[in-house]
Amino acid sequence: MSLRRDPNIIDPDGFYEELIAAQRDLSDELADLLLAKLVLILSNHVGDRAVLREALALARHNTVMTP
């Protein structure tokens, strides 16, 4: 299996609303911590090391390439 890059979330606006709501009323530090935990939770759910490696490379590349 390789990393999915096509849209795969049903009702993307509803999902995004929940994602923002999850960190509502948190301090910036706690919101960062929440997002870090979310990365770990989802990584564990994916499990597949090849997919995770691809995701990490994409995230890094997109961030380093984008000024």
Binding site: R5, P7, I9, P12, D13, Y16, L58, N62
Partner: peptide
């Protein structure tokens, strides 16, 4: 992050609102 990913990643585009 959504906006930066949207440049290359189709999955991020439906999230741009």
């Amino acid at each position: 992050a959504v906006l930066e990913l949207a440049k290359t990643e189709p999955f991020a585009r439906p999230l741009v609102n």
